[in-house]
Structures are given as structure tokens and as C-alpha cells.
Amino acid sequence: MTVSTIGSLKRNPSSKRAIVGSIMTGISALCLICTVIPLFAVLYFVIIQGFSRLNTNLFTQLPPPPGLSEGGIANALIGTLVVVGLATIIAVPIGVLAAVYLSEFSGNNKLALGIRFATNVLSGVPSIIAGVFAFGLLVSTRIVGFSSVAGGVALAVLMLPTIIRTTDEALKIVPQEVRWAALGVGAYNYQAVIKIVLPAALPGIVTGVTLGIARAAGETAPLIFTALFSNFWPNVSFQGLLEPIATLSVLVYNFAILPFKPQQELAWAGSLILVFLVLATSVIARFATRKQVY
């Protein structure tokens, strides 16, 4: 390569291509900033408004009557864990098994294509529709009424698309040679899936579950239609699962529209806790994806 050839490979900052590239780079950087600013603005505002209300009473006491100070949101914290836990128990087995069928046993037949299409549609359905569905199925029919079970079903409907799609993609990433190797040593198809493919895809499955939990934990509209609200301690017995229950998102909604400052402060504190819950689940999802088996 001659000196003249090397010189011709140097970037000319005044060329049209270089100018256009610089402009597009600047636009991309500006778009990135515009994307990040709202996130940090929300975090900053919620922390400023809610951090001052964080204390022991917040996590150990019931909400106070309107206009009175002190009190906490302990019942809503427990209720959120109960409802989201029920939704996870319902959604994870159904979602994972559906994804296993789609990836491993369907052969991309018409049923599988229909299920994938329905999953994509369901992922875009507004959350209030899931609440109306659970209300019509369980509440208005008096099967369970307003309860944590009805709330769990509504949130499970919202979690299913995320779990199915991420698990399906995680199973597709596992190399086909791994399945052939298991079948080559005499394993049945279901044995290869259970003992080889699923463990290999576990990080992706965990990611889908945590992302589904993150979405469900912050939903309000479905719980207004199903779990309603309660100012008392949740009853974690079987009978208690059939009663209305307090959740963080509904508490934030109810207290934010009240004209009393103590309740508004509790709403900000509940918002801060919800943000931290979503951030924690997102961090867990990112950590899970770091572990690569294949």
C-alpha cells in the first residue's frame, strides 16, 4: 500500500458524507438525552416528594383516617405481594408451558401461528380491558367477588404475553445441536426439553417472569375492577383471598386525589416504593441475562 493510498483513506471532515454523519450523530445523541431526561426527572421528583415520609411507621402501620397524620401503608405492601404472588403462580406455569409447546412441539403449525398472533395482540391490550375481563368473569358473576384472587387473575392476563414471548425466544436461542445430542444418547423428546433445553433457557425465562412481575406490580386499573381496596390488614388465609385487599397502586390513586396533605404524602411514599420495586425487578432481569449457559 503506497503513501498516496493511505492518504486517500483519511477522513475528510469537510466532505458531505462526514457532515451528514456528524449531524445524524448529534440528532441521535439528542434523542438519547430526550429519552433519559424523563426517566431521571420522574425518579428525582418521586424521591424528593416521597423520601421524607419514609420511616418505620410507613412499613408497620395501617393508613390513617382522612385528614389525620402518622400511619403507614403496610396493608398495601402486603396486599401487593399477595396479589402479584397469585398472578405469578397463575401466569408462570401457563406461560412457560405454552412457550414450550410453541418452541418444541408445535412444528410451527397453524395453531402455533394463531397463538403467537394472539399473544402479540394481548400484549398491546390496555390493562383496563384485563380488569374488565376479570370483573365480568369472576366479580359480576359472584364466583369470587372483589378479592385478591380476582386481582391475581387480572394481573396474570397482563403477565402472560411477556412470559410467553420471552420464554419462546429463550428456547429458540438454545442450539439445535443440544437437542440432537440428547436425542442421540437415547433421551425422549420431553426428557430433552425438561433436563436439557429448559435449564439452558432458564436465564431468559427468569427475565420474562421478572419483567412480567414489574409490569403487574404497577397496574392500577385492573385492581380497581377486581381487588378493590381495604383499609384493614390483609387476611392471608384461604377465606381472606376471597375478600377485597389493599394494593400499593390503588392506594396511590385513592390518596393522591384526596385534599388532605397526610394522605398525599403517603401517596408519594407509595409511589417511591413502587418505583423501587420496578427498578429492583428490572435489575434482577438484567442480572439473570448475564448468565449464559450456551
Rank of each mutant, 00 (worst) to 15 (best):
I129L: 14
I23C: 01
P93C: 09
I115C: 00
A91P: 04
G67K: 03
F146H: 05
S147P: 10
V149L: 15
G124F: 04
S52M: 13
I115Q: 00
A112Q: 01
I89P: 11
V84I: 13
I27A: 05
P65Y: 07
L102Y: 00
L39D: 03
L113I: 14
I23G: 00
A87L: 04
S123M: 13
V20G: 01
V139L: 07
T80L: 03
G145H: 06
S69K: 11
L81M: 14
N109L: 00
V46R: 10
I115Y: 01
N120R: 12
S123T: 10
F146N: 01
G85E: 12
A41Q: 09
T25N: 11
V144N: 10
L97D: 04
P64S: 08
P38R: 02
N120C: 02
G71W: 07
C31R: 04
L102G: 00
V139D: 05
G21E: 10
V125R: 08
Q49E: 15
V42M: 10
I89E: 09
L97Y: 08
G67D: 01
V83N: 01
P66T: 02
P126Q: 08
L137F: 13
S123I: 12
I27M: 07
I23E: 03
S148I: 11
T56D: 07
N109Q: 01
G26V: 06
V46Q: 10
V83R: 02
F40I: 15
V42A: 03
L68H: 07
T56A: 11
G79R: 01
I78G: 01
E70R: 14
V132R: 05
I143F: 10
N75H: 06
T88F: 08
A118S: 11
S123G: 14
V132D: 03
V20P: 01
T88K: 11
L113S: 13
V139I: 12
F40G: 04
N57H: 13
G145Q: 08
I90A: 05
F117P: 03
G79N: 00
E70Q: 14
P65H: 06
E104A: 02
L138F: 12
L30K: 03
F40D: 04
M24H: 08
A91S: 09
S69T: 09
S147Y: 12
L122N: 06
T56I: 15
I143N: 05
V82M: 09
T25A: 11
L86W: 12
F40V: 14
R53L: 12
E70H: 12
T80I: 12
L54I: 15
T119K: 05
L58A: 11
V121D: 05
A130F: 15
G136L: 06
A29G: 09
I48E: 15
G26H: 05
L39W: 07
I89N: 08
V96P: 08
I48K: 14
G136N: 12
V139H: 03
L137H: 10
V84K: 07
